[in-house]
Simulated assay, not measured.
Amino acid sequence: MLTISADAVDQALTFPGLVETLRAAFREGAVQPVRHHHEVERPDGATSTLLLMPAWTDFHAAGTSAGGHIGVKIVTVSPDNNAIGKPAVMGLYLLLNGATGEPEALIDGQRLTQWRTACASALAAHYLAREDASRLLVVGAGALSPFLAKAHSAVRPIKTIRIWNRTPANAEKVAADLRAEGFAAEAASDLDAELGQADIVSSATITTMPLVKGALLKPGAHVDLVGGFTPTMRESDDDAITRARIYVDTRAGATKEAGDIVQPLASGVLIPEAIVADLHELARGEKQGRQGPGEITLFKSVGAALEDLAAGIAVYNALKP
C-alpha cells in the first residue's frame, strides 16, 4: 500500500488535468451514498464535525465486475483550530481495490480535498462563467483559497485576482504567495466594492452571516459557493439566489446539507424546480449552463465522494510503481 503525502499529491496532479478527470467522473458516475455527517461534542464545549464519504466504481454501469476501486474519506472539521495555528479541516483518504478490497493507497486527505474541491468549482465555471471572465474575487483566505484561484485561472483568462478576508493580513499572505507563482493577486479591503467588479466570485468560508450580497453583483457574474457545508452556514443572501440561475454539484447533497440552498428552499425564496442542473447533468449534456452574457449564475458545492474517488484514483495511477 502506498502512503501518499501532500507534496506527492501536488506532483501527481495538474489543474487542467483534474478538471477533465472530474468531468469524466461526473459523466460516467459512481456509487456514492450521501455522506455520514456527525457532530462531535467535546469536553471543552466546542463542537467538531466528523464526515465519512464513501464511493465506489459503478460496476453495473461499467458493464464489468472486474477492476475498479472503493474509496472512503475521513474528515474532521474543527473551526477553532485556527486559534492554535492548525488547519480547520483534517483528513485521510483510503483507496481500495474494487475486486478484492485490498488497500492500495492512503492519501493525504486535506490536500486531495483542496485539489478536488477547487477543480469541481472550475469544472462548474467552465459551463457557467463567461468565457471572457478575467477578474476573480476569492472570499476567504483559508488553505483552499489559493487552489480556487489557480483552478479558476486554469479554465478562464483570469488577469486580476483579489483576496478578501476578515483578517487583512491573512488575505495579504495568500495574495503574496500567489504573486510568487506569477499570478496578479492583491489583497482587497472593501468586499462590497469588489463584489460589484468581479466576473467570478469564489467564496470559501464557514460564515453563518451571508457575505456575498446579490444586489451588488454585476450582470454576467458567476458566483461559486464552496464553504458552507451545513444547513446553518450561508455565504450568499436571498438577493443572490433570486437574481441568479442556480446550479449544484449534487442535488441530494446540496438540498440536504448546504445552507445556501436549504434555507432559501425552507423560506420559499427558492423552489426545487429552480435548481437548473447538477454537475452530472452538465457533464452529460442533459442540461445547459450559461444562457447569455448578462446572466448571473450561482453554483453551490458541498462536495461529492465521487470527486474524491476520481482524484484519488488519478493520484494513485500517477504514482504507483
Rank of each mutant, 00 (worst) to 15 (best):
G268T: 11
G253M: 08
G182K: 02
G109F: 01
F59G: 00
G17N: 12
D249I: 04
V226E: 06
D238N: 13
V31G: 01
D238A: 15
D44E: 09
P231V: 12
I163Q: 09
K256C: 00
A204G: 06
K213G: 02
A184T: 11
T232I: 10
I275D: 05
Q11I: 04
P146C: 12
G285A: 08
L92F: 01
I74L: 15
G259D: 10
L51Y: 14
V138D: 04
G67K: 07
P272Y: 07
A283W: 03
A258E: 10
G29Q: 08
H152G: 00
G63C: 10
L195K: 08
S202K: 04
E131H: 14
A8H: 06
D10Y: 05
V139E: 02
L319E: 10
S145I: 07
D199Y: 03
D239N: 02
A25Y: 02
A83T: 12
G228E: 01
N165C: 04
A252Q: 14
L306D: 04
I241C: 00
L217M: 01
K86E: 14
R179T: 13
Q114E: 14
Y127Q: 06
Q288G: 14
L279Q: 09
G17V: 11
G294S: 15
D199P: 07
N317P: 00
I261S: 05
T49W: 12
T167D: 09
A99G: 04
G220F: 13
Q32Y: 05
H280A: 15
A193D: 08
H38M: 10
T205Y: 03
V276D: 11
L13E: 06
G312I: 01
V201H: 01
D80R: 15
A274T: 01
V226D: 07
P79C: 07
P293V: 09
G98D: 05
A240D: 04
I206M: 14
A12S: 13
A258Q: 06
I271A: 15
A125C: 13
P79Y: 12
Y316C: 05
V77W: 02
G29V: 12
D108R: 06
G17D: 11
A266N: 10
A105T: 11
L95M: 07
D177Y: 00
M233W: 08
V9W: 10
F299P: 05
P321T: 07
A61C: 00
T207D: 09
H222D: 08
Q110I: 11
Y127K: 04
M209L: 10
A61T: 12
W115S: 03
P219F: 09
K86Q: 15
V75H: 01
R284F: 01
S5V: 12
P43R: 13
S121E: 05
I206N: 06
I206Y: 02
I271M: 13
G63I: 10
D224N: 15
T64A: 09
E235D: 09
I4N: 08
L217Q: 03
G220I: 10
I161G: 07
G68T: 12
R35I: 02
T47C: 12
R116T: 03
E281R: 05
L128F: 00
I261H: 06
E307P: 03
F59V: 11
S236I: 13
T21V: 15
